[in-house]
Write a protein that binds this DNA or RNA. Structure first.
Lengths: 179, 179
DNA sequence: GCGAGCATGTAAACAGTTACATGATTCC
DNA sequence: GGAATCATGTAACTGTTTACATGCTCGC
């Protein structure tokens, strides 16, 4: 069982979902800490059904379109709970092309370097704004216990972005002071 | 050319390195924003030599051990500079198993949930301490322009960890207040 | 002499990306 | 009628991990 299968299991456990729903979720709502391509989803769902951890009912959409609505089985729930409690390996080794380029930045002149940093600032600001809109929705509706994960993770994503923006600001100041 | 090959190119550009050196660097100093396994390094080095972007001299270590010390070629420098200036795709889609588990945390009771969060706090604190020691070394020696990348990226890693610690603290308080 | 670390490589399995392929539904 | 979106799947390729395989060097 790879991590993706647990991710799928966890999402289906929250609510019944189709493969298409899962695809959207991995590209939108949980993308900050996990992602997956559409082409990974369907084979993985098949494996999970074979393993007896999920099952599906065929639902007719419109006139003839058959969609598979997946739900978790009791065995799936047990497997999921066990996995959630497992110890986490050290810390995630994330990959960040932007940081990699900046690390090699002795090649850039001041303008190029500042240009790259301000572009990133812009992107972070835009994403943060989207998160803040989401957050305002949560604030209005009191949520525990079902939405606890959503709430905490959203706050986490926002905190990381805010920290990155402060770091970018400081880096710009630093570069201005030395170059 | 994949990203790893540019990462290798950038590192070799800073100083002459062996495959073994690169392996260590990808597991230690740059692990915060890029990582690679030993088994990826050697085939990639071969490709870069074939492409004429790096070259090596054989250095004898001790009596007979031959090690290959790689250096960047002029074509390699050109290729690297071009790549560094390329625009970065949106924002990195990092994967964080810990966050994924917390997202599914409605399965945990208060103690289990707080246990997971405090364990992560411990790990973040330990890593932050190591970064702070590194940082103190940089502070004593004035560094630009060669060590600019090291300095900025280290500050970035520290900022992210500090933000995560604040987030974990707030999350613990939040959970205590609602559960 | 021994153990930790230096040094280089390959093979197999697994995970992830990009592209292909098809068709229905919903809303305008 | 057409476009965006819903919906499901496969194929080929690329990237990553884990394991295998070997041997030297340096310091104690």
């Amino acid at each position: 069982m790879n991590i993706l299968s647990y991710a799928i299991l966890g999402l289906i456990n929250k609510e019944k979902l189709t493969g298409y729903d899962l695809t959207k979720i991995f590209n939108d709502s949980v993308a900050d800490f996990w992602s997956a391509n559409q082409s990974q989803i369907y084979p993985e769902l098949k494996k999970l059904v074979q393993a007896g951890l999920i099952e599906y009912e065929v639902v007719i959409q419109g006139e003839i379109l058959e969609k598979k609505l997946y739900s978790i089985t009791p065995e799936g729930k047990t497997t999921l709970k066990k996995w959630i409690l497992e110890d986490d390996p050290v810390l995630p080794q994330s990959k960040d092309i932007f940081k990699l380029r900046i690390y090699f930045a002795e090649h850039l002149n001041k303008e190029q370097l500042l240009g790259k940093l301000t572009k990133r600032q812009q992107k972070c600001t835009n994403l943060l704004k989207r998160y803040q809109i989401k957050f305002n929705d949560y604030q209005n509706i009191p949520v525990p216990p079902i939405k606890l994960g959503d709430y905490i993770l959203l706050k986490g994503a926002m905190a990381q972005l805010e920290a990155q923006l402060v770091w970018l600001d400081e880096s710009i100041d630093y570069i201005n002071s030395i170059l």
